[in-house]
Design a protein around this nucleic acid. Structure first.
Lengths: 113, 113
DNA sequence: CCGGATACATTATTTTCTTATGTATATTCG
DNA sequence: CGAATATACATAAGAAAATAATGTATCCGG
């Protein structure tokens, strides 16, 4: 990562959920590429972090999967369950509030509006 | 913590350094109290996290210590070394940039100005 | 036909916390 | 005045969540 990567800890689930809420369905590789794109390569999600996270979200019932076959290669699409939609809103709000608090603590005069 | 605490991961060192840069010298207990105060109890640093962090900062040469005796009780004051001051600026800037990127990614229309 | 991209996945290790515990002194309040 | 709370340091076991490395396999462009 461009950022000393420990900052990303704890935010990955929220990022994934948010992307899914904006895109109906996405597959793992697509998510890593989209994040790089959206952050101008500043945040790069590694596969070792992403796949376990996706599996955990599925185990928690927050996402559903469907497998698609593109030629001989497979793609596992993830989409939000109803519970996942609720959780996404909560997580995004929580992260926004946290960032606001951090910005204030670090004297960064934030305005999330 | 009020926030699901995994969000705090990776930010503790930066918080401590920033406080020391604003206050010349502080001791551990004081830091925990100050953070609670500044964040209206929303961020609560535990001693189990703080003391190892302070020791690590010292081992890295970023802070200096001096012990003071208040009656029979001791206080270990921490203050930034020259290297610590540089690192503080870097870490705070990095965290600010990270938050900006996150806000953008999560569609929060930030303005850190 | 070969290297880079696409696409899934797991494992060992590391980092960074939490929770629990320990020790001790000082203060407040009924 | 004594008990609870606050002050003040510290460490240790365990958990969480990444990283880095590795593995397998297909697809595509030059």
């Amino acid at each position: 990562m461009t950022y000393s990567s420990e900052l990303l800890k704890g935010t990955l689930k929220t990022i994934v959920l948010k992307l899914l809420s904006d895109n109906k369905k996405m597959y793992g590789y697509e998510i890593t590429m989209r994040v790089r794109e959206l952050t101008q390569d500043r945040i790069q999600i590694t596969e070792g972090a992403l796949y376990p996270t996706l599996h955990a979200l599925e185990a928690d019932g927050l996402v559903r999967t469907e497998i698609e076959h593109i030629g001989k290669r497979m793609r596992k699409y993830y989409s939000l369950s109803p519970a996942g939609k609720t959780t996404t809103r909560e997580k995004v709000n929580e992260l926004a509030a946290f960032m606001q608090t951090m910005a204030q603590l670090l004297d960064l005069q934030p305005k999330l509006r």
